[in-house]
Design a protein around this nucleic acid. Structure first.
Lengths: 155, 155
DNA sequence: TATTGTTATACTCTATAACTATA
DNA sequence: TATAGTTATAGAGTATAACAATA
């Protein structure tokens, strides 16, 4: 008997599970783990396209709003302007986005997809569809939709 | 008329709202904004205690699992061991946690709350309760519970 | 050989202040 | 005066590799 207990202990040396003390019912804790998971899945899907969530979101909004300005894009993405500059730089350098001064307001830049950027987005949309379908498979379509609805209400 | 349009434009210089192109229905996008919001609220509530979400979670688990090891704590928190070391350091330096070598396995450390740490957690629990009640007020209790349930299923 | 804790390091995301050029 | 974009910088959070001590 004592040997069996010892064997069980040796067979499970991956560490002892802790009493979670209700932490697993805390919204902030769940949000952090869930976001880590979803972003890891996103990164795995989008690795071939070398797109982070914010880069994909930026391309998506520029596609839907050709001629938009960086200020409005930052506000829509929930990112500060200074943190958007280098990311736009990278999209311009990759030939996906054009940034040109707005003739009506020469302080502002006008953002558009280049033809290469438009072709690139065909692939990106397909990858995002696969990513989304995988998430829906994981939690069920009702739960997925409910999740988005409540999260939208939260913020 | 033209003057009115001009006035309306000047009265709303906060920027133009963009076509969100379905981005606001994307789970990853919603998760990012929701987590930003919840963490900001958390930070506002816990500023007097100088606790980040991970620091509070660590204290909570040490309180519920006196004598636990850093490996198991890191696994429970969803954090890598190297990233936990300095945070434990700070809790030890603040006199809230004691870290002593495990006599049964001298590679390992044993973590416990100090008496000061136990007193500190009375305040921390009260602050977390207020934080949680505010989140529940925002989305409703049913939605809050549903949210935690689905997020738990997601990860 | 494998594991615990640690150090060093790097990369990302986020935040603010201050600058420029325009308005 | 205020705004658009930029630069510089600082602070979290997270990731891996490699090491010493111990099992």
């Amino acid at each position: 008997m004592a040997d069996d207990i010892g064997a069980a202990r040796r067979a499970a040396p991956e560490g002892r599970a802790l009493d979670m003390a209700g932490l697993d019912q805390a919204l902030g804790f769940r949000l952090r783990l869930a976001q880590q998971f979803v972003f890891r899945e996103f990164a795995a899907h989008f690795a071939p396209l070398e797109l982070s969530p914010v880069l994909y979101s930026a391309l998506l909004l520029i596609e839907a709003n050709p001629g938009c300005r960086q200020t409005d894009l930052a506000a829509a993405l929930g990112v500060r302007q200074p943190n958007l500059v280098e990311r736009i730089d990278s999209l311009v350098q990759r030939g996906l986005v054009s940034r040109s001064p707005d003739p009506d307001d020469r302080r502002a830049n006008v953002l558009k997809l280049t033809p290469a950027g438009q072709r690139f987005m065909v692939r990106a949309h397909a990858v995002h569809d696969r990513h989304t379908r995988q998430l829906i498979e994981r939690v069920g379509e009702e739960n997925h939709d409910k999740l988005v609805e409540i999260l939208e209400r939260l913020y």
